[in-house]
Design a binder for these strands. Structure first.
Lengths: 371, 371
DNA sequence: CTGAAAGCGCTAACAG
DNA sequence: CTGTTAGCGCTTTCAG
């Protein structure tokens, strides 16, 4: 049923060694046999077993990507495109992507070790890099090829690909400052993840470069979901000195801030400005649309794949890091400051009265629409 | 560097055959050696090479899932959770998921063949089943184990998992009819995909069961994106006899319909009702929220994985099909009919006047908010 | 209960 | 240019 190299050799009346060399394009085979072999291979539908090949070469022709379903909200948005990018780039060399799912951080590290030791994969792509990433430690020990999607400590030792998040957040900050905002809040994401410090650094840099006036900045961390962002923003906006501009490490938390803003009867993009990061599709459907940096996750995956292939194939290949930019999507969630912090606080304090009057007007509008 | 079964055998002064049997839990090994071997294995960090195992067993301990990045919009939303579900369920048996990406339909079929012939995977999960699916044809020929996520012709021959989409759309239709809608439109998705006929059938069934009054139904196909839905809805709503209720095969097209509705100055959920299917996160951020059927993609992936494992491991395992339900998320995009089709047409024809008056009122609201 | 040995399908020396 | 041969690391009879 399953056709092996022996079958093919028998069929052609030559040895399997010759068949192997013909198929692998060795120079020392006559052109005519090469042709004959290739033809017969196609006819019989022969393709070498990757498993049997792997036992000789020591390679599985697969790279690993391990996910954490636990943090669904945080990891979901970007991964599908990322996966497409990886598998497309490695497919050229006959590689496939092996995806596994860990149920916890500890299991995650073990899974990396096991998959490599069992030779199910030849290397890894590590998304969502952490400070002192335990995955890196164990893979270093095993001398496993790896590429980081993101940055970390001792970066020169590794191949990595990342968005220049410092620059993104510097620009976002400069943008809000140019809009006249002087009270800012930074809602950071998962604290252990390395990107978090980069994004915060970008914000601090932006403020530092701005020398015209005093700027207030409040910093929060572990704001990773819509409810997180909502809750945090409600709390801040009800405080005596609320921020008028929100810089969010994640689109999800930014969407939460937009919701909070509306709940308080404020208009996002007018009374309060919000900027996110990542470019998830939800941001295009909120009202107003979310101003954010759109990351090309497909490209990121593709480049990670390319780098990993280099590491695996070109022995003694040097590691390389690449930094690229995301593009700002200017939608409606930010704009020129209307109230300063103090005015905003007053405005919010009176929101009940205003909300009810707004409702009355809404009913009027409705009625008139009905004719 | 890499520790093999031989190393372990040498270390313990026993034969590798014994080591192998001890590790695989054969009955005919003394408990004491089993313990010794396990301990030594842990100490030396020995794990059998999946590649070497595979050459004997003929199994790669991996299942394949092949994606089409081309149809990004259509395939993106559901896949990540689906992938998590698959890899979680197969991980119990030491299996991993191999993901590959095809650039075209033809390449997709080839990839299935190649991955199986090369023994990189032991079976496949086929999402997005088509009419006379060419993937199934080739895999049947190769006697490759497969599980369908979705239905198709000759279903009794295969293992499959699906949502009862006929029932979902029957309910959606009954719901709009109960709301008093009598002019409906069904915006179908990719025509070659099998789900499309099921969803349409559900709509037709719902209408057929409704005997109180005459119901108009317009049917469209290949409406797969937001712009598709937008365009189609604009055209329909501007027609002399516009539908007041939209049944959309996909959330994406439903979101397009909502946009169209707003562009025409109508209020979705009041002047026009829209129901989607799938439960993508965007639906929660549109205004109003999209009423839709939420599919548990994780569970779907999990069940597909379980079925595939049965097929691969239990020889002579019989195929099995499972039908489950999605849950209706009642959000704001549908509701009791306000205008019948004729009234709606008139209303839309006068929209310009209305829109400008609405704007005036909006400015009033704004002004009052400012104090 | 354990060791010896064959062989899975393929590649890569090494002869010829 | 091609055939022969020796493994790669593991599993699995088959003897003992």
């Amino acid at each position: 049923m399953k056709v092996t190299i022996q079958d093919l050799a028998d069929h052609l009346g030559i040895s399997k060694g010759t068949v192997s060399r013909a198929l692998r394009g060795y120079a020392d085979v006559s052109a005519s046999t090469v042709a004959r072999v290739q033809q017969a291979a196609k006819k019989l539908g022969y393709q070498p077993s990757a498993v049997a090949q792997g036992i000789k070469t020591g390679l599985a022709r697969s790279v690993g990507l391990i996910l954490l379903p636990k943090s669904r909200a945080a990891s979901r948005p970007f991964l599908m495109q990322f996966i497409n990018g990886i598998s497309t780039s490695i497919a050229k060399q006959g590689y496939t992507l092996t995806v596994a799912t860990a149920q916890s951080d500890a299991e995650m590290v073990e899974l990396h070790r096991d998959l490599f030791v069992q030779r199910k994969v030849d290397g890894f792509i590590l998304p969502r890099t952490m400070h002192d990433d335990p995955r890196i430690q164990i893979l270093d020990q095993l001398k496993a090829p790896l590429v980081l999607y993101g940055q970390t400590e001792n970066l020169t030792q590794y191949s990595w690909f990342d968005i220049n998040q410092v620059e993104c957040f510097r620009r976002a900050t400069a943008r809000l400052l140019a809009f006249g905002h002087r009270h800012l809040a930074f809602l950071g994401g998962d604290a252990p993840l390395f990107y978090n410090s980069l994004r915060r650094k970008g914000v601090e840099l932006g403020i530092q470069e701005f020398e015209r006036e005093e700027v207030q900045l409040q910093i929060f961390e572990n704001i990773t979901t819509v409810p997180d962002g909502l809750e945090c923003a409600i709390r801040l906006l009800k405080s005596p000195q609320p921020p008028t501009g929100f810089l969010c490490a994640l689109d999800l938390s930014a969407l939460g801030v937009i919701r909070a803003t509306k709940q308080l009867g404020l208009i996002p993009g007018e009374h309060v400005s919000v900027i996110g990061y990542e470019g998830i599709p939800e941001g295009d459907f909120s009202e107003p649309g979310l101003t954010t940096f759109e990351v090309d996750q497909y490209e990121a995956g593709f480049q990670c794949g390319v780098k990993l292939m280099q590491l695996i194939h070109e022995k003694g290949a040097k590691v390389s890091g690449t930094l690229t930019m995301a593009v700002l999507l200017e939608r409606g969630s930010d704009g020129p400051v209307r109230f300063n912090s103090t005015e905003l606080a007053t405005f919010i304090r009176n929101r009940k009265r205003l909300l009810s009057s707004q409702e009355k007007l809404h009913r009027m509008t409705e009625k008139s629409l009905r004719n």
